[in-house]
Design a protein around this nucleic acid. Structure first.
Lengths: 247, 247
DNA sequence: CGCCCCATTGAGACGGCTCAACTTGCGTGG
DNA sequence: CCACGCAAGTTGAGCCGTCTCAATGGGGCG
């Protein structure tokens, strides 16, 4: 990417071609305390790609690992397929969230990554990132932290799957999305789910029928309002109670 | 720690005081391609502590994050406790495995860590490790890889909890332990489980009764032989089939 | 319009949980 | 030394939550 593009808002492709410097998500995917100078250095290695359509894969499990990705807009899911063809969604990613860390170990990606809707991602070539993290201690620390956060998120998910009943799992997901949207300055109460019931069920270890029934039940009790993928949380407190209830 | 201790096999405490250089686990917790010179540098920052007894905590969730730990002997479990006091074991750690990465993000440990039996761990102060990883690219890469492997292991566990029935979960754990022991040059068929039925059930999202019943059933079918914590795997293939079977 | 995909809802089956009784091994104290 | 208590594990009976299977409804698109 040419440095000329830095600080321009559009480029020849016609879609937004932003720099990290003026990206309103930088508080999420970059260290808060990072130098403008260092951000610019990072900026020069980041490649911003064309939008990817919903259903389109960014990469697949087994592909040669090359880059880390940050979601700029839209939403992404990652899933693995085991030897028997069983699929497990391992995460949903919203703008500002970073993915691809599972490829570092074996040098091949461990997950499949697919867009849930039209999305834009920032690609960070790992070999160049590694050089930068050696030079910018804050940046090394930051990527250690990002990976650490991944691990913690996964631990939380283990608890959800291991200890909560169907209602608790759905409630936990809804509150997680709500929190993450509100951190992006969106309403914590009204949201459009980027994923299907199928995806939710797969992620939470439930069938789509159970997910559907839970949604209906929560609606009947006026805790949420559901219309397809549109969800409004009417009663955060009761939803929270449901999360924090053993099975 | 004095450099004088390097390459000595014992120290004044009377227990083994080894260096990484002659540690037979270094193939597991250190980069294969690491310079002797660099290993020595890492060695000078590593603190080897007294053995910790079974049931004794290495640290607790919320404690100030300071170090990464490598298991030298014995075995360790990590667990989190959520707001409602529900405990979830997040991992078992065998010699050569590294833990503590969950503390990097918030600068407080996210998990409780307790020894399952008398164990020895190597403590790696993180601030000094960070300095070294900036100077030794292989080492930086290695710790990125270790964290990446953690993430992959967790993903695998999500699949286990989300998609497998009780039998599949137990079989998966047994095979995982078997593999990990054999990588440590121990028998892949006969082992002594370091954890209780309670721990197994907690980790796998099952009750102890169910775990016990599964053990009995697998024994009746001659797939394993169980005597308390002593387990012999008689039929790896059938155990493997059970793992790879949808619920 | 008709087709397909996704979602919803109902009825019945089944796997794992709950509750309870019993066994075994171990440490403690009379 | 045995009696006792306690913790860990095993086993059985019945219940409950989630899955399975099936039917139906609704929206997008050729």
């Amino acid at each position: 990417m040419s440095n000329l593009a830095v600080n321009n808002d559009t480029c020849s492709h016609g879609f937004v071609q932003a720099s990290c410097t003026n990206c309103n998500l930088k508080g999420l995917c970059l260290p808060l305390a990072m130098d403008i100078k260092d951000i610019d250095r990072l900026n020069t290695i980041i490649q911003r790609s064309h939008p990817i359509q919903g259903g389109e894969h960014l990469y697949r499990a087994g592909d040669k690992f090359s880059s880390i990705y940050a979601v700029r807009s839209g939403s992404i899911k990652t899933y693995m397929i085991d030897d028997d063809g069983i699929e497990q969604i391992t995460g949903f990613y919203l703008p500002g969230e970073v993915l691809g860390f599972d490829g570092i170990d074996t040098n091949n990606y461990g997950c499949n990554v697919v867009a849930l809707e039209t999305s834009i991602v920032c690609e960070i070539p790992f070999s160049r990132l590694e050089e930068l993290t050696l030079q910018i201690p804050t940046l090394q620390r930051h990527f250690f932290q990002l990976m650490s956060r991944h691990i913690e998120t996964n631990h939380q998910m283990l608890l959800t799957l291991s200890k909560k009943n169907a209602e608790g799992r759905v409630a936990t997901l809804l509150l997680s999305l709500s929190q993450r949207y509100s951190r992006r300055k969106l309403s914590p109460n009204a949201m459009r789910l980027p994923m299907s019931r199928m995806d939710i069920g797969n992620f939470l270890g439930l069938t789509i029928e159970t997910v559907s029934r839970i949604f209906s039940r929560l609606q009947k009790e006026n805790i949420i309002s559901v219309d397809g993928r549109e969800v409004v949380i009417n009663d955060h407190d009761r939803l929270n109670e449901i999360c924090h209830k053993a099975r």
